[in-house]
Structures are given as structure tokens and as C-alpha cells.
Design a protein around this nucleic acid. Structure first.
Length: 554
RNA sequence: GCGCCUGUAGCUCAGCUGGAUAGAGCAACGGACUUCUAAUCCGUAGGUCGCAGGUUCGAGUCCUGCCAGGCGUACCA
């Protein structure tokens, strides 16, 4: 609709120029916006204002000329008026909106999908929690955000891959192995001194128990490197499968699980480091290997391989990101916890040093989650092994509520997650508010079917009787959906979809309370069913993108 | 010290990359269920958009400085 109006304005400008009413033929881009206030019409443009300079004419005067030359052949405008300093406001006739409903019925759950990405390959890597313990609430937010962003991009025509990076190498894995071994030895009756820097959680003991059942006490008699590494491998596998299971329950399925260790095993890591060393991007100093990140915008150079020969995390991240680009992804998106933000300049520098554009690497920073119960903070300490896991949250409040709440805020602001509130099936809980719309409409449909009202599509726009303010407001909201989705995808801000859905839900509930869908008037009833079915489709559509279900009953 | 994020109604937050009179929800107060699901709706009240400058026709939005909170600033992960 915006494009259509923009074209009309541009045509009017050209006509005016041909007639000699406007002095310049170079026109600014026509931007059509939806005003905040209903009195300012359905659409408005500041075109006259921005053209004032080029046309050397007062904005209002330009606006008058444009309006006089406007050729509204289809009669979509009820009124066009000039307001304020030179805004042109467009009021549409109700019927002008009807085609939106047809489009929704045609495309169903594809309404709003677009070709914005033109099939470009994009990878979204998220969660990627270390396989040293179960996922907690914070990971849940990252999972919800990453998954929704990936869904949005796919919906907008990108070729998207979801990936989980497993940090199955390095010291924390050894520590994990040691922790399990010690607990195993304990279970085997040995006296052990469990160090503080080992993993404290109960799950370590469980894993040790399982391993002991499999292998017997033999493994825990002597603390050899081999025994510890066996424990590490077993524990990693156990934990990863637990994580995978939690994520599946949370509705997140990855296309690929990528092992850090594989970068070393395949020799890929070696290859890249030596190549970068040849290029002079990596150099040796004080027995360590350094990356010249400061030449690419980082505040100082960073260590890649420590003096003791151990590679840092940064080392494998360099190799990993190179690997991503070599797999053909045009854009690589990482979802990180906000506490890692200091890492961005470093990795961006590395990406650029390897010959890619910095815009090809994007990081979504997700702020922390404060877990509350009834308004009071829930104590969480990873050190002491006491934390509320994602699995606990799913058990207590369910996947739908958790995912939706995680997406009710911009990722850059911290989120209070109140377990009590999340469980509440009330006003305070926006998930149910939105889902309720879907359930209500399903109920109307069922009732309609019961009364033998088949729901054939009312013929064309002509037959529709939708003219109450609530109905028009609903259709206008539905019309905004494609733009909301596109903006959410472009800016990687899934919360826009959430807010859109809450807005649409509010308008539906208002409508529902004021008007009956099933009436004595057959034509009116069919029209309203047509509208309400479209609302149902868009709610379902949006919830799909967020990874939240659309229940038919509540 | 430096860097990133945040600061909007009593509380929790939106604000569509600069538009017109700043919006929701909760909490408060007053109303609406013999009707298609009240997990809903309608109404009232609530604001120096942290503070001070600047940019321009126009700033919650952009630039600078300051204040407050969070996070980070390793040859940790």
C-alpha cells in the first residue's frame, strides 16, 4: 500500500513538472509513513517538506500542487489533506483495505514471507554453551532469540543454517574429566579431596555413577591421564545429549553441531595459523603467538598461542570463523551473552584480517536474565553448582510461556524472568493473551461449523461488509504484519514480532467484546468470519516465527 | 582510567533508524459475564523522555560533556 501511494505521489510530481508547476525534475525519495495519530490519516508523507529546498518553494505550496495532480484512478482515498507545515495525509476508504484479507487467505502461513534475503546463505550460531554442565535460564534466552532470528531470516528469504558450537577441547574439558573421575573414585570408596575449581554440581556425581556402572571401579583406581580423559569424553557426551534433549523440548533443533576439537583433529587449525603467520598477521613475541588485532580496530594485539604452547579460546575461534566463511556463508551471526561483549572487537578484527568484510560478521548480544520468584531474586551460583536449569524452567512454566517471555524485550535490555508470573494464566502473562485469540477464533469456527455455516470466501471485495472502526483497525493492523516481520528480520529484533502480536491481540479482544461474529445476517457473518480467520492465520503465523504454539483450545 | 549496554508514567517496558498532541501492560479507582471461551473488555488518573549544551523547519531518537546503574577490560573460559 505504501509503495502504491508513493508511486501516486511521484506521478503527481512528474505531472506537475510537465505542466510547469514545479521547477525541478529531481525528486527526493518518497517516504510514506503511518502517522501515530488517527486524525493524521492512514498514511502520510513529508515529501513536500523535504522537497522544499530543491524546488525552492514553500512546502505547503508544493503539497497543494501535488494534491491537485494526484490521480487516484482506483478511488482508494476517502480524503487527502494538507496539514501542519506541509504534510500530506491520506485517509483511505474502508474497501481499499479489503485486498489485505484476500492476500492473507491466499498465502495463509506464508503471509508476510518475502524474498528480502534472495537466498543468501546465512548462519546463526547460538547457545553454544560449554559441555561442562546443563543449560540454565540465561541459555534459554539465547536459544529463544537465536532460534527466532533464524526463523525470521528464513521467512524473509535467506538460506539459514542453525549451528551449535561445542567447546569440547581445552582445559575446562580436562577439569570436567577430573571432576567426574574424583566423584567416581569417591563412589568407589576412595577418600578424595574435591578441589574448589572442579565442577561442583550434583550432575557430576550422576555421570560418575553411570560411568562406574558401565566400567566398574577399575577406572577409578588410579588417576592417569587416560582415565581422566575417558571420564571427560564420557561426561561430554552425556552432557551434550542432555543439552540436545533440553533444547528439543524447548523447540530448538540445530542443523549442525560443530565440534571445536574437530578443528584440531583435521589439521585445519594448524593450516590457518601457519598461513596467517606467513601473512604476518600472526607473529611471535615472548614465546607466545600474537594476532595483530590492533591493526584492525582492536585496542591491542591478542595472544593466540600461550608461551606454554596451549592455544587460547581465541585461537580456535579464529579457525572456527574461517571455517564458517569457507562453508560459503555470506553472513555469520553469533548470539552471545552480553558479558562477552569485550570479545567483539577482537573477533571482528580477526575476520577482517582474514580477508572478509566486517559487516559479514554480526553479533547479537543478549543481556542477562534475572530469575525471580514472586518478585524476589532466585539465588544462583554456578560455582556452588546451584542454579535453576532450563529444564527446570520448562517443567515449571512450559516452553511456550518461557519462549514468549524471553522475546518480550529487546535483547539489549536485561530481562526479569519471574517464575510465578510466567506460570500465571492471567492478564499479566502476555503469552496467554495472544494464544487466547487463537483459541477464541477456533472456538468461533467450531460454532459456525456446528450451525452449518460453511465458510466459503465471500466473493471479491465487493461482498464484504466490514466497516465498523474496530474492523477497520483490525485490518490495518494485519496489513502492517509484513513490514513488522521484515524489520524484525533486517534488524534481528524478534521482539518486534512479539509486540506486533500483542497489539493485534488487543485489537481482536476489543473487537470480540464489542461485536458478534456469528449474527443473523448471513452476509455479515461471512464477512466477519473472513476477517477473523485472517486474524487467526496471522497470529498462528507470528507465533510460529517465535517458536510458540497456537492452541485451538485453552 | 578506558570500552560496551542501559536510564521514558509509582513498577515492567515499547517507541517502526529525525516527524505532528510520547504509547502499552501491571499496580490504583469506577464499570461490563442468561450471548461466539471474563486467560477478556470499557472508562478515569498518571510524564521536565537522567541532566546540560549542540545540530535544523522539527530531537525520546543524531553529536558533545556530565550523572547514575550493569557488564567487560587475562598468555580465564
Amino acid at each position: 500500500m505504501k509503495d502504491r501511494i508513493a508511486r501516486l505521489i511521484l506521478d503527481a510530481a512528474r505531472t506537475a513538472f510537465d505542466k510547469g508547476q514545479l521547477p525541478s525534475a529531481t525528486f527526493e525519495e518518497v517516504v510514506i509513513e503511518t502517522p501515530k495519530h488517527q486524525q493524521h490519516g492512514d498514511f502520510a508523507t513529508n515529501f513536500a517538506l523535504v522537497s522544499a529546498k530543491a524546488q525552492k518553494m514553500a512546502p505547503r505550496k508544493i503539497a497543494e500542487i501535488l494534491v491537485a495532480n494526484l490521480a487516484d484512478h482506483d478511488g482508494i482515498f476517502a480524503a487527502v489533506e494538507i496539514a501542519g507545515p506541509g504534510f500530506i495525509n491520506f485517509h483511505l476508504r474502508p474497501e481499499a483495505w479489503y485486498p489485505v484479507l484476500d492476500e492473507i487467505h491466499d498465502r495463509k502461513l506464508e503471509y508476510g514471507a518475502s524474498d528480502l534475503g534472495q537466498g543468501r546463505k546465512v548462519q546463526v550460531e547460538f547457545v553454544s554453551s560449554n559441555p561442562t554442565g546443563p543449560l540454565h535460564v540465561g541459555h534459554g534466552r539465547g536459544a529463544a532469540v537465536g532460534d527466532a532470528v533464524a526463523n525470521l531470516l528464513a521467512f524473509c528469504g535467506y538460506d539459514v543454517q542453525k549451528e551449535y558450537y561445542i567447546n569440547d577441547s581445552g582445559r575446562q574439558i580436562r577439569t570436567l574429566g577430573l571432576s567426574v573421575w574424583l566423584r567416581g573414585a569417591e563412589l568407589a570408596g576412595e577418600q578424595v579431596d574435591f578441589p574448589e575449581d572442579c565442577y561442583q554440581g550434583d550432575y557430576i556425581r550422576d555421570i560418575a555413577g553411570q560411568l562406574r556402572e558401565l566400567k566398574g571401579d577399575q577406572l577409578f583406581r588410579q588417576q592417569t591421564d587416560e582415565a581422566v580423559m575417558e571420564c571427560a569424553r564420557f561426561a561430554t557426551d552425556q552432557i551434550i545429549s542432555g543439552i540436545r534433549n533440553d533444547l528439543e523440548r524447548f523447540g530448538v533443533v540445530f542443523d549442525q553441531w560443530f565440534s571445536e576439537q574437530s578443528l584440531y583433529d583435521s589439521g585445519e587449525y594448524e593450516r590457518i595459523v601457519s598461513q596467517l603467520e606467513q601473512e604476518g598477521v600472526i607473529y611471535r613475541k615472548d614465546d607466545a603467538l600474537w594476532f595483530r588485532t590492533s591493526s584492525f580496530g582492536d585496542e591491542k594485539d591478542r595472544v593466540v598461542v600461550r608461551a606454554n604452547g596451549q592455544p587460547t579460546y581465541f585461537a580456535s575461534d579464529i579457525a572456527y570463523h574461517r571455517n564458517k566463511f569457507e562453508r560459503g556463508f555470506e553472513t555469520v551471526i553469533d548470539v552471545w551473552g552480553a558479558d562477552h561483549h569485550g570479545y567483539i572487537p577482537r573477533l571482528t578484527a580477526a575476520v577482517e584480517a582474514m580477508g572478509y568484510r566486517r559487516e559479514q560478521f554480526k553479533v547479537i548480544l543478549v543481556q542477562l536474565v534475572n530469575l525471580l520468584r514472586g518478585g524476589k531474586p532466585v539465588a544462583m551460583s554456578t560455582r556452588a553448582g546451584q542454579f535453576v536449569t532450563l529444564a527446570d524452567v520448562i517443567d515449571e512454566v512450559g516452553t511456550d510461556a518461557a519462549r514468549f517471555i524471553f522475546l518480550t524485550r529487546d535483547t539489549s535490555s536485561p530481562l526479569d524472568f519471574d517464575l510465578e508470573l510466567a506460570k500465571q494464566k492471567s492478564n499479566d502473562n502476555p503469552v496467554y493473551y495472544v494464544q487466547y485469540v487463537h483459541a477464541r477464533i477456533c472456538s468461533i469456527m467450531a460454532k459456525a461449523a456446528e450451525r452449518g455455516i460453511d465458510t466459503p470466501r465471500p466473493a471479491g471485495g465487493g461482498g464484504l461488509q466490514l466497516d465498523t472502526p474496530e474492523e477497520i483497525a483490525l485490518i490495518k493492523t494485519l496489513a502492517r504484519y509484513p513490514e513488522a516481520v521484515a524489520t524484525a528480520a533486517e534488524r534481528m529484533e524478534p521482539h518486534r514480532v512479539t509486540f506486533f502480536l500483542m497489539d493485534l491481540a488487543a485489537r481482536f479482544h476489543a473487537y470480540y467484546n464489542k461485536h458478534r461474529v456469528l449474527t443473523e445476517d448471513r452476509q455479515l457473518t461471512l464477512s466477519r468470519l473472513h476477517l477473523v480467520e485472517a486474524v487467526k492465520l496471522v497470529i498462528h503465523n507470528g507465533l510460529n516465527l517465535l517458536g510458540v504454539s497456537a492452541p485451538t483450545k485453552m
